[in-house]
Design a protein around this nucleic acid. Structure first.
Lengths: 230, 230
DNA sequence: GGCCCCGTGAACAGTATGAACACAAGCAGC
DNA sequence: GCTGCTTGTGTTCATACTGTTCACGGGGCC
């Protein structure tokens, strides 16, 4: 059984993660913390004699009192061998790099659905099982294979008709600045047709990642613009 | 260029690692340290204004003054985003787990030969290149794929279905110029079928050696082009 | 020789894309 | 208000490329 601490400032989201966890066999909820200091207190309590230890932390990077990276550093300097899965809405490569460098084992970008959640936790379970099994030999091959199970690449589920590459290009442009794009503007910029740009923008609006607004003023039918939601 | 610091208590072994590094294009030796404190001093000097930063540390776990894990923790608490490859003769699973938890990206067990060394550093170069490339979109798929390039495939062993000489022909053509090839173009040029060309190009994309892009514009489903990654 | 394994490509079903088009929503003039 | 005009939306469908399956041929090994 892998005991998991959920750290997330929004109570609703924290509950959702806890419920996701409840549906997964092999995992047990060890607690919920809504601040970084609460998380560190729960963790230090769990290391006491007789208490059930915590194996894994689902750690939101955005917390009211301190940065998620800071929480992770505190865990490390306390010499606790607790694994961390980072969860964040921040789309910033340097943050990803830093998170990996402080030893997070998985990186989940919000918003995500149950399948993405399951994939990350299952792969962690596989990794954890290998490295805690005393029968595992300490050979280069065994270590490589354990790391591989952690970093296995699984195909992300996209609706039919959408390509991961194109979606990546659209989100990269949209998320870069706080400006709203119309389908036509985006298509000009990326070398796509308006129809295709619209398809991807509508998808992002559908999953709540983009907000739709009407651009009034000129003559003719108003233009619809899409703004990235953080 | 990836700047590397070699940390190893035995001078002969340290020299050997530095020589291995010298034979690898894309990497530069930033220094050699034989103790933990010397390593930390070199690292803190390298972060000064005007100095060349250190990107990667080849860190032996066994050092005269302090544990390699302790060196790693010090780097973390100094908030430096420096990646670490652990090198050790210790065959102990808990040490492996703890090393991974403090954020090492690769784990090399001594003794190892040049091929194993190359494999670990090349896969790191691929990972590093992806996460420092500003063109990389911050999507779940991109992060997963960057992490996947850290996953090592056993040295010299190709996935089943791929032949070494065919792969050689493909990489030779791809790497020659900075143009992107579609699977069909490549197959025409090499006298292969499109299916086979695609297999090898997908393999290169999977290990991060090629970048995939969609070629939009014309009518019909877009063509995927593959560009060599340096 | 008989057997098995593996790299290859022909064939085919599936799927991202954009040209074309019918329609909808605003504005201006009366 | 109604009418016309202008501009962008939303949908359909041909299209070209993708991704997968499966049979073949050649090479190593009992």
């Amino acid at each position: 059984m892998i005991r998991v601490l959920v750290v997330e400032d929004d109570p609703t989201t924290a509950q959702a993660h806890a419920q996701y966890l409840g549906r997964l066999p092999g995992f047990a909820l060890a607690g919920i913390a809504t601040t970084g200091s609460a998380a560190l207190r729960l963790i230090s309590e769990s290391t006491r004699e007789g208490a059930d230890g915590i194996d894994l932390v689902l750690l939101d990077m955005h917390l009211p009192d301190m940065d998620g990276l800071e929480v992770c550093r505190s865990i490390r300097s306390a010499r606790l061998t607790i694994d961390v899965i980072a969860i964040t809405a921040v789309r910033d490569l340097p943050v990803v790099r830093e998170a990996i460098s402080v030893g997070i084992v998985q990186y989940l970008i919000k918003p995500f659905g149950y399948p993405a959640f399951v994939e990350k936790l299952e792969s962690f379970a596989s990794y954890h099982g290998r490295l805690t099994d005393p029968a595992t030999p300490t050979t280069q091959a065994a270590v490589d294979s354990a790391l591989a199970s952690l970093r296995s690449t699984a195909p992300g589920q996209l609706p039919k008709g959408l390509a991961a590459d194109t979606l990546g290009a659209v989100t990269a442009l949209l998320a870069r600045a706080d400006v709203a794009w119309s389908a036509t503007e985006l298509s000009d910029h990326l070398g796509l047709s308006r129809v295709t740009a619209r398809r991807y923008l509508e998808h992002l609006a559908g999953i709540g990642q983009a907000a739709r607004e009407s651009r009034h003023g000129g003559s003719g039918r108003p233009e619809i613009e899409y703004r990235w939601r953080r």
